[in-house]
């Protein structure tokens, strides 16, 4: 391995990491937002919206992100909707993640025994209050492992962004290999930078999970 080459490449990978993180987190925020709204709709069983959410989940969970990005980036401009590559990336990731987040949060909500809801009602809390003060705190702590798995999954999915000309980590590596053919160096940095991005999240996740479970069960 040629360490001069590695030194030369590091700034490029750093930029790619920042871009990946930026779009990754934007996408994750969008997906969490969709997740909360969507699971609330499913929880309250709001009639027509419930069907919509169901269709949305099935569409986005059963098509690859690559296909969704292709559609948003290459097909929408044909009908006059032109979005920048970054917005497309965020949107694609957010919509895909949203479908997973809804299911994860919903499973958390459903894991809370009905008696909690009934008890809350008997204490005079209305539906919204019981969701906010009683059900949600417990449900979130159940959902945390799933949510974190989703976050890591979404950050890894950014590797298909090359299709829409975003210089993410994967594309940077491929591009450098194409130009200078230093395969080992480029791939080594790729693995290292993915680990730099994801290991802290994974570790943070363990801590967070502990904290959240403390809220529910104590240590």
């Amino acid at each position: 391995m040629d360490f001069n080459v590695i030194n030369e490449y590091i700034p490029l990978y750093k930029n790619a990491l920042l871009l990946t993180l930026k779009i990754g987190w934007q996408g994750i925020l969008v997906s969490l937002f969709i997740g909360l709204i969507g699971s609330a709709i499913l929880y309250f069983r709001i009639k027509i919206l419930k069907t919509f959410i169901g269709i949305y989940i099935e569409i986005f969970r059963n098509t690859p992100l690559l296909v969704q990005l292709f559609f948003i980036y290459f097909a929408l401009p044909k009908i006059g909707i032109v979005l920048s590559a970054e917005v497309c990336g965020t949107l694609g990731l957010g919509l895909l993640g949203g479908a997973y987040m809804i299911e994860t949060i919903r499973s958390g909500l459903e894991s809370i025994p009905v008696i909690q809801r009934e008890s809350a009602a008997s204490l005079g809390l209305n539906e919204m209050q019981s969701l906010w003060h009683v059900i949600l705190p417990q449900a979130i702590s159940v959902s945390v492992p799933g949510l974190l798995a989703n976050v890591i999954f979404l950050l890894k999915e950014t590797s298909v962004f090359s299709t829409i000309s975003l210089m993410d980590l994967m594309f940077t590596a491929k591009d450098l290999i194409g130009m200078y053919a230093k395969t080992i160096e480029a791939l080594f940095l790729l693995v290292v930078f993915y680990l730099i991005m994801l290991l802290p999240i994974s570790i943070l996740g363990t801590i967070l999970e502990r904290r959240m479970r403390y809220g529910q069960f104590g240590d």
């Binding site: 080594f188 290292v192 680990l195």
Partner: peptide
């Protein structure tokens, strides 16, 4: 547990590094 996690993370990193220098 946290410590164990950090150590295992570092281990993963070093294994990867070793594998690649091996290839090199």
């Amino acid at each position: 547990k946290f410590l164990r996690r950090v150590v295992s993370g570092l281990l993963v990193l070093s294994v990867v590094a070793a594998a690649f220098t091996g290839c090199g």
